[in-house]
Amino acid sequence: MVIIIIIDGSYLEGGGQILRTSIALSSLLNKPVKIINIRKKRKNKGLAKQHLACIKAMKKLCNAEVEGLYLGSEEVTFIPSKLSPKDFTINIGSAGSVTLVIQTLLPLALGINKKFTVKIIGGTDVKYAPTVDYMKYITLKILENYGIKSELRLIRRGFYPEGGGEVIFTLFPSKIKMFDLVEHSGSREVFGIAYVQNLKEEIARRMRKRAVDLLNKYGFQPNIKVEVSKGISTGAGIFLSNDTIGSSYLGEKGLRAEIVAERATENLLKERKLALDRYMGDQIIPFLAFGKGKVGVSEITNHTKTNIWVVKHFLDVEFDIKEYKEGYIIEAL
C-alpha cells in the first residue's frame, strides 16, 4: 500500500511555499504527497501559474503522476518515480517568479546523478519573491559554500505584469556539508546593482547615488554597478549585498528613485545582525535538515516556522531555536 503524506496548505502563512517545499521533498525522497487547502489564506486561492510551473518541472524530472494540476486547484496529489535529470524549458506564461521555480528545484541537487539545465521564462524581479540577484548572490552563493553546486545566468529581466524575463539555471549533483554559519563576517563592503529596463539611465544613477551616500555615511564601502537594458517588460530596482546578507527593492510608478534606494539600504542595515537575513532564514531550512548544524538568523518568520513544519513531515529531524544576541540560532539535530 502506498503511504501518502498529507500536508495542510492552510498552516500558518498558508502560501505557496508549503506547496513548493512539499513537492521538492516528495521528488527528492520519492515519497508521495497530497497537499490540501492550497494557498487557503491568499486572496486568489489555489494554484497560480507559477505554482503550476513548479509542479510541471518536478513532474518532468521524476516522472510523477499528478492529480489536480490546473489553475485554481486547491488540492494536488503528487506521486513521484525515480529522478531522471533532463534539460528543458519552462515558460511560466506570466510574471510569475522564476526564482521560486529555482527554489523548488534546488534540493534535487542531493538526489541527481548528472547535471541538468533549465531555461525559465517569467518574472525575475517581482514582489513577494527573491529577485534574481538575491538568488544568485545570496541564496546560491551560501548554498555553494555548503556543497550545493549550481549556476544561474540572467539573460533578460522580467517585471510585472508582462514578465518575459529569462534565466538559464544549471544544477549539479551535490553533497551537503554540515552548517556552521552563525555570525556575520563583519565585512563593511557592499556590492550592488541599480538597474532599469526600458527606462532612463538617470533613474538607475539616482538610485545608485542615494545608496552610495547612505552607505558611506554609515561607514561602509559600496561598489554599486548601474545596469540599463531593453526588454519585454518595464521596471527598475536595486539589489544590495553585504557578504551573506541581501536586500532588494523594486521601483514603482510614483516612487522616487531615491526612496527605492533608501528602503533597500535601510533593510540591509536592519537585517545585518547575524549571518543570515530573514529571507534566507526560511530558504535554508530544507538544506539544514539534510546537512545538520546551525545558522544565525535575524528573525524567525512565519515562513521559517512553516518550512520547519513541512520538512518534519518528510524527515526525522528536530529544530532547536534559541535567542542569540539580536537574533536567533536555528540548529538541526
Rank of each mutant, 00 (worst) to 15 (best):
L12S: 04
G14A: 11
G16W: 09
Q17W: 00
R20W: 07
L25Q: 03
S27N: 02
L29K: 07
I35Y: 08
I36N: 10
I38E: 06
R42S: 10
R42F: 04
K43I: 13
G46A: 07
K49H: 08
K49Y: 08
A53P: 01
C54M: 12
K56F: 01
K56P: 00
K59N: 07
E67D: 14
E67N: 11
G72Y: 02
E74F: 00
K86V: 13
I92M: 02
S94P: 10
G96F: 03
T99P: 02
L100F: 01
L100D: 03
L105S: 05
P107L: 08
T124W: 06
A129D: 10
P130M: 05
T131V: 03
T131R: 07
T131Q: 01
V132F: 11
I142N: 06
E144S: 14
E144K: 14
I148G: 02
K149N: 11
I155N: 08
P161Q: 12
E166K: 06
I168T: 10
L171R: 04
S174G: 08
M178P: 04
F179I: 10
S185R: 12
E189A: 07
E189P: 00
E189G: 02
V190E: 06
G192W: 02
I193H: 03
A194S: 15
L199V: 08
K200F: 04
E201F: 01
I203Y: 13
R205F: 01
N216R: 14
P222G: 03
V226D: 05
S229A: 15
G231L: 11
I232F: 13
S233H: 11
G235Y: 12
G235S: 12
N242K: 14
D243I: 09
T244K: 13
I245A: 08
Y249E: 14
Y249N: 12
A257Q: 11
V260Y: 07
E262M: 13
N267K: 15
L269C: 09
E271S: 13
E271R: 15
Q283L: 15
Q283W: 10
I285S: 04
F290I: 05
G291H: 08
G291C: 09
K294L: 04
G296T: 12
H303F: 12
D316P: 03
V317S: 07
I321M: 09
K322A: 01
E326K: 15
E331S: 14
